[in-house]
Design a protein around this nucleic acid. Structure first.
Lengths: 134, 134
DNA sequence: GTGTCATGTGAGAAGCGTTCTCATCTCTAC
DNA sequence: GTAGAGATGAGAACGCTTCTCACATGACAC
């Protein structure tokens, strides 16, 4: 259930299917185009509402930015982690948080307190790296 | 020279003064208001152009986000580092990059290659932490 | 199956931050 | 002083996102 307890409509079912079928990270505009291919007439507002519902349900995450738009991706993980966005194929890989307490030691030593952080990682996923190396 | 080799106008001189006088991170809108207090009539476009010039000159950095706007701050450092934005006083502290090669080891082990990263740190600076503790 | 009601929908306007355009001004080099 | 490159202000335009409103529809009780 991508939307949590929210009501399921035909549009939302379709949007969920398209989101699941997409290879990785996508913007709202890209999703709108992909949905429009299967059902022209679905409004952009509906896309944003569905994305909002999925984010609220915790099945969708904001993983970065592309061309000024929010980059989103399916992610069911609820533990603290970050996302590596492949700049080649747009796939998204969940990675453990690379920050340990030790990493903040210099800042803490200066008296600062770090309460939250946002990390966006960009690079190549394993398969793109393999095919590039070939 | 906040603008690098670019031409200096009275507006840019004023903007540079205001930027220097501001306590820490600010948005374009906040800077526009601050500049307007001393010289009403300076256009928002001029603010954005000046900010762009300062970023190009490497004297200004994008350090995070606030309310959907880009959060900027003066920063002359040219080495690789990140910024801790104090959520209490908006001051900005440059901190060493907390990511080492070891931090990426799990991702690298899975075959991924991380080429770039963006980190935004939020918390309390030393002085705010001291005054809060008092 | 029917009725009710909360919730989702599409279209488009609006809001927001940012960038662009263009005529004009002004700083800088000579 | 002059020429020309570059900066300016005003406001239109842009792109992304959210809101509004009348209407449609799914869920649920009966």
């Amino acid at each position: 259930m991508l939307y949590g307890g929210a009501r399921m409509s035909t549009q939302r079912r379709l949007i969920a299917e398209v989101v699941t079928a997409l290879p990785g990270a996508f913007t709202a505009e890209e999703l709108h185009r992909a949905v429009a291919e299967r059902a022209p007439g679905v409004g952009l507002a509906t896309i944003y509402r569905a994305l909002c519902a999925m984010q609220a349900a915790g099945t969708l995450s904001h993983v970065g930015e592309r061309g000024g738009s929010a980059l989103l991706a399916l992610c069911g993980r609820h533990d603290h982690h970050h996302h590596l966005v492949c700049t080649s194929c747009a796939s998204v890989v969940g990675v453990e948080c690379p920050l340990s307490d030790a990493a903040f030691a210099p800042a803490v030593k200066q008296g600062h307190l770090i309460t939250s952080h946002q990390i966006a990682l960009y690079g190549l996923c394993a398969s793109c790296r393999t095919s590039e190396g070939a």
